[in-house]
Amino acid sequence: MATLHLLSHSPFSDSRLASCLRLLGPDDGVLLSGDAVYALQPGTAQLQALELMPASIALYALDEDLQARALSAPARAQAIDYPTFVELCGHYAKVNSWL
């Protein structure tokens, strides 16, 4: 029953990403959207934490949010569009949004 975790708050001003990372199951996925994509800013502890996740945990970022913020997806993350977001919801057993 793997979970896709959806985050949308900046990890520099908010504890949601840190809390989420502690609760991940081995086959869960993490999807960064909105200001949560700032977690992919190079040279940060936040990106390092994401890169330390086990390889079985997939990492996604919403492409439009990356583009808007002049960020690009590092090798560890996959930039996705909305149709892929929708399909991912079916790939995982449930979606946990950190509202």
Binding site: M1, R22, L23, G25, K94, N96, S97, W98, L99
Partner: peptide
């Protein structure tokens, strides 16, 4: 603890975090 929480999330069909 954190490990048990990960297992707890796994057990439910749906999760809403507010």
């Amino acid at each position: 603890d954190d490990h048990a929480l990960a297992q707890l999330l796994d057990r439910f069909d749906q999760v809403v975090t507010i």
